[in-house]
Simulated assay, not measured.
Amino acid sequence: MGGPAAPPPAERTRPADARAAVREVPDRPDAAPEPLPASDPVRVRIPAIGVDARLMRLALDAEGRLEPPPPNLPAFAGWYARGTPPGSPGTAVLTGHLDTPAGPAVFHRLGALTRGAGIAIERADGRTALFTVDAVEEYAKDRFPDDEVYGGSGRPELRLITCGGDWSGDTGYRANTVVYATLTGVG
């Protein structure tokens, strides 16, 4: 998968107006739910694109980049385990393959998500963090906006990342697809 640089530590924040200048968060009729205490995520469900996948813990590789799940587990997604757990204050990061040599993988249709779609993250504590998609963006790997993607706002946010763009036999995919979502409910 390759591409994006390392996520920041869970406590990193970004300027309050950094993301607002790029996209607006949709109006929510109800008050935002209370953030959840830390708990490992165990499953991600995205009904709009048919995703129902187990989650594994991910770390950084020797170059400081987020490792994707192993290619021999194309149906798995993973989360950056040293970062924010989904539903807690900050930016949680999940990643998965677009495809592998065996065919389409867990996030094959991630770029088809649209604003307003729902994402459910089941957690080890038995609760489900419910997110709503705010935006879907594609970034060239050489212009990946680390601060925007990984930076936190203090509220529970989620980023889903996979490869995107054109394929090059020499370098792989030339872009990354990033889904931005905000916690809108707890189940």
Rank of each mutant, 00 (worst) to 15 (best):
P4M: 02
P7K: 03
P7N: 06
P7H: 09
P7W: 10
P7G: 05
E11K: 07
E11C: 01
R12F: 05
P15M: 02
D17P: 00
A18F: 10
A18K: 09
R19S: 11
A20W: 01
A21L: 13
V22P: 01
E24P: 01
P29M: 02
A32T: 01
E34P: 03
P35A: 12
P37R: 10
A38G: 08
P41A: 11
R43F: 07
V44M: 12
P47W: 05
P47A: 09
I49D: 04
I49E: 09
G50S: 08
G50A: 12
G50E: 11
D52N: 13
L55R: 04
L55S: 05
M56L: 13
A59E: 14
E67V: 13
P69R: 12
N72F: 13
P74M: 07
A75E: 15
A75S: 13
F76C: 04
A77R: 07
A77V: 05
G78N: 03
W79N: 03
Y80L: 04
G83Q: 09
P85K: 00
P86H: 09
G87Y: 02
S88H: 09
T91I: 01
A92N: 01
A92F: 01
V93W: 05
L94D: 08
T95F: 00
T95K: 01
L98I: 12
T100E: 08
P101T: 06
A102T: 11
G103Y: 03
P104H: 03
F107S: 05
H108D: 14
H108C: 06
A112S: 15
T114D: 14
R115Y: 02
G116M: 08
G116L: 11
G118H: 13
I121G: 06
G126R: 06
A129G: 08
T132C: 09
A135Y: 05
A135K: 12
E137T: 10
K141Q: 11
K141F: 04
K141G: 00
D142L: 06
D147W: 07
E148L: 15
Y150R: 07
Y150F: 15
G151E: 01
S153E: 11
G154V: 04
P156T: 06
E157Y: 02
L158K: 03
R159T: 05
I161N: 09
G164T: 07
G165S: 11
D166S: 15
G169D: 14
D170T: 13
Y173P: 04
R174H: 06
A175E: 14
N176M: 10
T177M: 05
T177V: 15
A181C: 02
G187S: 12
G187H: 11
